[in-house]
C-alpha cells in the first residue's frame, strides 16, 4: 500500500468517526471524536508530554535491566545443554503466570514511584528474553565452539564472543517480544497505581469521564510503542547489514 493511500484511508476513517459522533449515532461521551481528542491535546498537552517523558524513562530503565539480565542469564544458561534442559521449563512456566499479580507486592516493597514500574517492567521483559536467548544459544552449531576452543578461547570468550554472537538473530527476536511486553507492562502498572506517567493520566481522566484525554493518552502510548518498535527495527536492520 502506498503512503498516499494509507493517508487517504486514515483521513476517511477519522472523518467517518467524527461524523458518526456528531450525528449522535455513536455516543461521543463514550467513543470520543477526533475533535474531542484535539481539544484534549490543546488543553492538557503539556501535562501529557511531561508524562510521556516520565513513562519513557521508566521504559528505558526497565528495558536496560531486562535486556542485560535476560541476555546474560539466557546466554549463560543456554551455553550448557544440561542447564538449558533444567531451567528453560521453569522459565516457560513463568510465562503463563499473569505477572501483574506481583505488581502489588513490588509496590508494597518499593513504593508507588517509578521504581516499582521499572522492576515490574523489567520482570515482564526478562522471561521472554531469557527464554528465547536460551533456545537460540542451545541451537547454535556446536562445531563453532570446538573451533573457538581449539583457537584458544577461554570459557567466557566462547560463551560471549562466539555462542552469543551466533545466537544473535534469536536474541533479537526475544528482545522484540520482551520489549513490547515490557512497554505495555509499564503503562499497565502506571494505570494501576502511580503518581505520574501516561498510564496514570489515562486512568485519572477516565475516572473524570474526560473521554478526549483518555483517547489522547492512549494515542500517545501507541505512538511511543510504535516509535520504540521502529527503533528496534532500525537497529536490527543495521546489524543485519553489517553481518549480512
Amino acid at each position: 500500500m502506498s503512503i498516499l493511500r494509507k493517508l487517504l484511508i486514515t483521513i476517511l476513517v477519522l472523518a467517518l468517526w467524527e461524523a458518526l459522533g456528531a450525528a449522535g449515532i455513536l455516543n461521543p461521551m463514550l467513543v470520543g471524536t477526533p475533535s474531542m481528542i484535539a481539544r484534549a491535546a490543546m488543553k492538557d498537552g503539556t501535562t501529557f508530554l511531561i508524562a510521556s517523558r516520565f513513562t519513557l524513562v521508566e521504559i528505558l530503565s526497565a528495558g536496560a535491566i531486562a535486556w542485560t539480565l535476560g541476555i546474560s542469564a539466557g546466554v549463560i544458561i543456554g551455553a550448557r545443554a544440561t542447564s538449558a534442559l533444567i531451567i528453560s521449563p521453569l522459565l516457560s512456566a513463568m510465562i503463563a503466570v499473569p505477572l501483574v499479580v506481583l505488581y502489588p507486592v513490588i509496590v508494597a516493597w518499593t513504593g508507588i514511584g517509578p521504581t516499582s514500574k521499572i522492576i515490574y517492567g523489567a520482570a515482564t521483559g526478562f522471561f521472554p528474553i531469557a527464554l528465547t536467548t536460551i533456545s537460540g544459544v542451545s541451537a547454535i552449531d556446536r562445531r563453532f565452539v570446538d573451533m573457538a576452543r581449539a583457537m584458544g578461547a577461554n570459557t567466557a570468550q566462547v560463551i560471549f564472543q562466539v555462542m552469543a554472537r551466533l545466537a544473535l538473530p534469536a536474541i533479537m527476536s526475544g528482545l522484540r517480544i520482551g520489549s513490547s511486553l515490557l512497554i505495555i507492562a509499564v503503562v499497565q502498572s502506571e494505570m494501576l497505581s502511580a503518581t505520574d506517567g501516561l498510564g496514570f493520566w489515562i486512568s485519572y481522566h477516565r475516572s473524570l469521564f474526560n473521554v478526549g484525554q483518555v483517547y489522547f493518552g492512549i494515542c500517545l502510548v501507541l505512538v511511543l510503542a510504535a516509535g520504540l518498535n521502529g527503533l528496534l527495527n532500525y537497529c536490527e536492520r543495521r546489524l543485519r547489514l553489517q553481518t549480512a
Partner: peptide, 18 residues
C-alpha cells in the same frame, strides 16, 4: 587445547560470519 602449538582446520571452514 594448545592454541600456540597446534593450529586446526575443520572440514567446514567454520569462519565466523560476522
Amino acid at each position: 587445547p594448545q592454541p600456540e602449538k597446534i593450529g586446526v582446520v575443520f572440514q567446514d571452514a567454520l569462519l565466523l560470519p560476522w
